[in-house]
């Protein structure tokens, strides 16, 4: 079974088609890098796959379920442009909140373990509004991984991360990949993404113009996909 199966998906904002007849498939354990210029539809596609909005046409299946099914949502972890943690709560309270929402057997223990993993255990009781940008981003990473998702949807995950947060995220993504989890990430940081990717999809104006395995050529020259399949 595919981890993610996107069949003929269209998404409209008014009359404007942000996604045009998208067909995409990610097998379990694959790491798919979604690349494309600004406004190509990467974020819209990821958000539609995550179930934040419904496609205008077509269907999306996450491990065989609709993205809005509870079973599918339980298996997804999402990092978007926002960090999705509450400024008014402490780091520990934030992670415990999500642990409870995901029905983890011991939310406090899971939260403490992830705070340790992301190097935030010393500030666990500090309010997020007092955190530096890098600390907030590491907390966002901990939130997304907290419930052990089988599918990670990452929208430009390396953008605006500090060195430590990049190292934490890369380490976690490699571990996730080694454990057979599926990763879908949109990115402009081609070098970081292609090092992890098993597959690449190039979006131009809401349409997938290339979808295939990540080759050595792409890794050595991140501009290769754009040069070969993109617009001049």
């Amino acid at each position: 079974m595919s981890a993610v199966a996107v069949e003929g998906v269209w998404k409209f904002y008014g009359d404007f088609p942000a996604l045009r007849d998208i067909h995409l498939d990610a097998a379990e354990g694959a790491a798919l890098a979604l690349i494309g210029r600004n406004g190509a539809g990467k974020t819209t596609l990821l958000r539609t796959i995550a179930g934040f909005s419904r496609p205008g046409r077509g269907s999306i299946k996450i491990f065989g379920d609709s993205p809005r099914e509870v079973a599918a949502r339980r298996r997804m972890g999402f990092i978007g442009h926002g960090i999705s943690v509450y400024d008014e709560l402490s780091a520990l309270e934030n992670l415990m909140l999500y642990g409870r929402l995901y029905g983890l057997p011991n939310p406090r223990q899971s939260a403490l373990e992830w705070l340790e993993r992301t190097g935030l255990e010393r500030v666990r009781d500090g309010l997020v509004r007092e955190f530096s940008r890098g600390m907030r981003q590491r907390l966002a990473v901990a939130r997304a991984f907290l419930h052990g998702p089988s599918l990670l949807l990452l929208d430009e995950p390396f953008t605006a991360l500090d060195d430590k947060a990049i190292a934490v995220l890369q380490r976690l993504l490699r571990e996730a990949q080694a454990e057979g989890k599926t990763i879908l990430m949109s990115t402009h940081q081609l070098r970081e993404a292609l090092e992890l990717a098993t597959h690449v999809a190039l979006l131009i104006r809401g349409k997938v113009v290339f979808h295939g395995p990540c080759t050595a050529e792409m890794v050595s020259d991140p501009g290769f996909v754009y040069a070969k399949y993109g617009e001049q």
Partner: peptide, 15 residues
């Protein structure tokens, strides 16, 4: 809204 927390709530397995 401030940190896109609604996304995380919608993504959580909560009706």
């Amino acid at each position: 809204q401030p940190n896109d927390c609604l996304d995380a709530l919608i993504a959580a397995p909560v009706p």
